[in-house]
Design a protein around this nucleic acid. Structure first.
Lengths: 335, 335
DNA sequence: AAGCAATATGAAATGGGTTACATACTCAAC
DNA sequence: GTTGAGTATGTAACCCATTTCATATTGCTT
């Protein structure tokens, strides 16, 4: 069905080699002949078979993007950043959703390897290091994004510690303490980093880190809801809650509304991520914004560089976060 | 670097053909020998080169997914539906963002064709029909999703007319009229369909369709904001606004808040899509929910069927929408 | 006139699998 | 003992493009 260089060659009356040269344009072909070949190719609607090309060239111009779940509002921006840069350089992106399930992740990594992707960007669930190590052994470039894993490979993340520090310091500056923290699940590296930022800000300001105000959530809305209700049962509840992602912060706000606690008057709430809905809640959510798109685009640039030069020195990029102050933490003036 | 069947063949002392047979498992190979080959393959960490396989088999087990923009909250669910079904059947998905730009769309379609994807799912911007026609001529299966184009090819959409009819009838039932409608851009097919649902409901209930209450937006938040302000300038403003997507509905609500108009008491607002933030706004947004995930998964199933049987009859699936009544349209009891 | 670089094209190997065809062996049936 | 079906394996062609090597021609230099 699809046209091949052999068919073009036959029609023009030359060898396939000449057609290949004329089309690639990087070898001697008589100008006149080249023009004719190009014309015939266009006429026959020729589109080179990339399967065949990559078999000999050993590059597929395809990269893999492995994320936990594209429906999680945090990931589409990253994906878009990756895809834009990839497309600008003539690469395609294969999207994979692992649900943070290491069995699925392994399956995907094997599929991607079998398809001989030129490299991949990985937002890895847990430290599935043995699998990654294999890929690197096979010489497949890997860039880790968002979640840092203790592993010698290129990496693009945000400064989680600084972000949490900013958020906590903001609350302290407003005189809102004690401050409870609802962390992410302990098997994710972000948890430790964000907690550390919280701890630093507390200690630096001479505030005690009370163990009963440290709660572990799972990054889902319901855990924010549930844990907030628990906090409200305490004899002396905190005056502020720092939820380590926006979804849990939303859960907090719903719980607080259910219990008739005014935000921000009686309880300040700060989230993390600045996903889309953060600016549409009432009150609008104060949160720590991460440069999601940039994380994706820089990860992709890093990957493409690595593909070009496998021996380049390891690259570790840490992007800065930004505190976005909205209504959930600051009591409006004039009320 | 990567292991080939030739290397395995040499190590075991058989021909490459035998190795291929042992690995594929669909031809005679002595059980004992097969076991040995499988073991050696595992030991040598063999992963078949899919480039080579697809060159001869003429199938890549890869499909393309072309969407306007994955960061638009409407599309991740569709993408996830597609990807889940694809993965379950051993296919990978290449993600493409066209920004509804037909030049970009054309570029992507050519790339995908060159990579010899087995088929593709297209949420096409405008009627870029000539390009699609070409693909179908080349025998590449295409399934259109969400946006129906007048084109003889498989299709999965939702019933936009019925959805808009439900929304309008809901407002009429609440006694909220006149009802303004903020439509999508006129070059998208969804616009005509949703407007038709609005019109039907109005006419059916003996209400006049007033031209000055029909406004054309662009599916972005700001157009909802701007057009709502215009509506409020009228001598007799409407009592309800039906915005044809949630983003514009959000713009409405922000404009109404700015102008001190109470929702839903003074103005009822209904959106369309039921994207994530619709349930987190204050008041929560009444909207028409589309089965996004199902649209993706069914589109993918349809595509895989078509790949298996190119001569199967054309399939057109229309999914039903569901009105989700929240707070932006109904005055709460006991207030 | 000989020599050589630059230009122009083709033949054939290559990449890594799959498979049609050929060949060889085993075992049962007559 | 011959025939034939079933089992087992190898040889070689094929998928489609790229590229090395070989060959041929042109035009310039000395």
């Amino acid at each position: 069905m699809a046209t091949t260089i052999y068919e073009i060659a036959e029609r023009v009356g030359v060898s396939p080699a000449t057609v290949s040269r004329a089309l690639s344009g990087k070898d001697y072909v008589r100008q006149e002949l080249r023009d004719e070949i190009l014309e015939v190719a266009k006429e026959m609607n020729y589109h080179p078979n990339q399967q065949a090309r990559s078999l000999v060239l050993k590059e597929t111009h395809t990269i893999g993007l492995v994320v936990p779940d594209i429906t999680n509002p945090f990931f589409p921006s990253i994906a878009r950043g990756v895809e834009d840069v990839a497309h600008a350089h003539g690469y395609n992106v294969i999207l994979c959703n692992t649900d943070s399930n290491s069995r699925k992740e392994k399956q995907y990594l094997e599929m991607l390897y079998s398809k001989r992707v030129d490299g991949l960007i990985l937002i890895s669930s847990q430290a599935n290091t043995s699998q990654i190590k294999k890929l690197l052994e096979y010489n497949v470039p890997v860039v880790l994004a968002d979640r840092s894993i203790d592993f010698p490979c290129d990496l693009v993340t945000t400064d989680n510690t600084a972000g949490a520090y900013q958020a906590t310091k903001h609350l302290i500056g407003l005189g809102r303490y004690p401050i409870a923290i609802i962390t992410g699940p302990s098997d994710l590296p972000t948890r430790g980093e964000r907690f550390e930022g919280y701890r630093m800000a507390m200690v630096e300001n001479g505030l005690e880190v009370q163990p009963e105000l440290i709660l572990e959530g799972d990054y889902r809305q319901h855990s924010g809801y549930r844990l907030t209700k628990e906090l409200l049962k305490m004899k002396e509840p905190p005056q502020a809650i720092f939820a380590c992602n926006d979804l849990m912060a939303l859960g907090c706000m719903v719980a607080l509304e259910d219990m008739g606690v005014e935000v921000p008057e009686q309880m300040a709430v700060v989230g993390y991520d600045d996903v889309e809905f953060a600016s549409t809640t009432r009150p609008r959510l104060t949160t720590v914004a991460q440069p999601k798109y940039e994380m994706g685009s820089i990860a992709c640039e890093t990957l493409l560089k690595r593909i070009r030069d496998k021996d380049a020195p390891q690259r570790r990029v840490v992007l800065q976060t930004q505190l976005v102050v909205r209504e959930s933490s600051v009591v409006a003036e004039g009320r």
